[in-house]
Amino acid sequence: MRNNLKTAALLAGLGALCMFIGSFWGRGGVVIGLLIGLAMCGGSYWFSDRLAIRSAQAVEVSPDQMPQYHAIVTDLAQRAGIPQPRLYVSPNPQPNAFATGRNPDNAAVCVTQGLLQILDWEEIQGVLAHELSHVRNRDILIGSVAAAVAMGITFVAHMAQFAMIFGGGRSDERSNPFGALLMVILAPIAAALIQMAISRSREYEADASAARMLGTGEPLARALEKLEAGAERVPVAVNPAEASAYIVNPLRGRNASGLFMTHPPVAERIARLRSGAWV
C-alpha cells in the first residue's frame, strides 16, 4: 500500500509538472503538457520493464542456456513466495544487476556479463536474493516509474530549452523568460532528487530481506565488495535516470557527485550485512 501511494504520487507529480511547464506557453501549452503527462504516466506504468530491458540490451536466457542461473532463481522465488521472473543477461562489461516490472507477475531480473565473470555462484545467489527481494517487496515498480519520471522531466526540460532558443515561448506581457530559464535549470536537478529520495531506503531493505532469505548476509556482502570495485574500474554510459535500478551505482566510475547518489554507501551496506542488523 505504501509503495502504491508513492507510485501514485510520482505519477501525479509528473502530470502536474508537465502541465506547469506547458503553462509557460499559454493555455494551449497546458493542454499539451497534460497530454504529454498522461502519455508518460501510462508509459511509465505499463512499459517501464520493457524500456529497462531494451536500454540494457539484455537478452532473455532459457534454462537450457543457463541452468544454474535458473535453478538459483527458482529456489529463491519459492522461498519468497513469488512467481519466477523472466531472466535476462546484458552484454554490459560492468558487473551489475537489476530487477524491473510493475508487479511480481510481470517481473524480470537481469545480470550483466561483467557480473557473471567476477562472482562465484554463491555470491551471485546473494545478488539474486537482493533482486528478488525488490520483487517481493513490490518496490521495483516505484523504481521503474521514478526512472521514467526522471527521464520525462529531463526530456520536457530539453524541449523547453529548445523552445526558448527558437522563440517558442509566450509573447504576451505575462511571459517570464527568467522563470522558464530557471525551470530548465532546476528540472533535471528535481529529477535527480526524486530518485535519490526513494532509492536509498529500498536498497537497505532489499539487502536485509536477501540476508534473511539466505540466513546469512555474507554472500551478498562479498558480492557488493566486488561489484563496487568493478563499477569503479569499468565505467559505462548508463542513462543517469536508470542508475537507481542497479544493485550498485553504475555511474561510480564516472565521478558522479555524492550529493545526488541514488544508492547508499556500499561500505555501510556491507557493514550492516556483516553485523547481523538484518536479523
Rank of each mutant, 00 (worst) to 15 (best):
V149W: 12
L51S: 14
L87H: 02
V135S: 01
M1H: 15
P265N: 02
D120F: 06
P104V: 10
A210L: 03
A243K: 07
L182Q: 12
P235I: 09
A180G: 10
I72K: 04
P104N: 03
N96V: 09
A267W: 06
H130R: 03
N239A: 08
A208P: 01
H263Q: 02
I247G: 00
S23K: 11
P67C: 06
A237H: 13
L35A: 11
T7S: 06
L5H: 07
S90V: 11
F98C: 04
R174I: 13
A243N: 03
F20L: 15
Y69W: 09
I194N: 05
F20T: 12
V111N: 00
V145W: 08
S201H: 09
N103D: 12
L220Y: 07
I140S: 10
G258T: 04
H158E: 14
P91A: 10
A12M: 06
G29D: 00
A52R: 03
V109S: 00
I189W: 14
A245W: 09
G101A: 05
A80L: 13
G28S: 08
I194T: 12
F24K: 08
G26K: 10
D64G: 15
A277C: 04
L116H: 02
P67G: 01
R102Y: 14
N137C: 05
L87P: 00
Q84M: 08
I53Y: 01
P67K: 06
G22Y: 13
L186Y: 06
I36Q: 07
A256G: 04
A267R: 13
P91V: 13
P264Q: 02
A191I: 14
Q161I: 13
I194D: 00
A187F: 10
R50D: 03
V248I: 04
I153G: 09
G217Y: 09
G29A: 05
D105N: 15
S48Q: 12
A237W: 14
H134Q: 06
L115A: 07
F155A: 15
A231R: 05
S275F: 09
N249V: 01
G215N: 05
P63W: 11
Q68V: 15
D139K: 08
P83A: 07
W25A: 14
R170I: 05
N106E: 08
M19H: 01
A256R: 07
A108T: 02
Y69G: 00
A190T: 13
L259W: 15
T216K: 11
P91I: 12
V149D: 07
R136G: 01
A206C: 02
V61K: 07
Q68C: 04
A12C: 07
C41T: 14
A146Q: 01
A243W: 05
S257T: 01
L116V: 03
A211W: 06
Q94I: 12
S171E: 04
M159S: 10
V111I: 10
S201I: 08
G22F: 12
N96W: 10
H70P: 00
Y246G: 01
G101I: 06
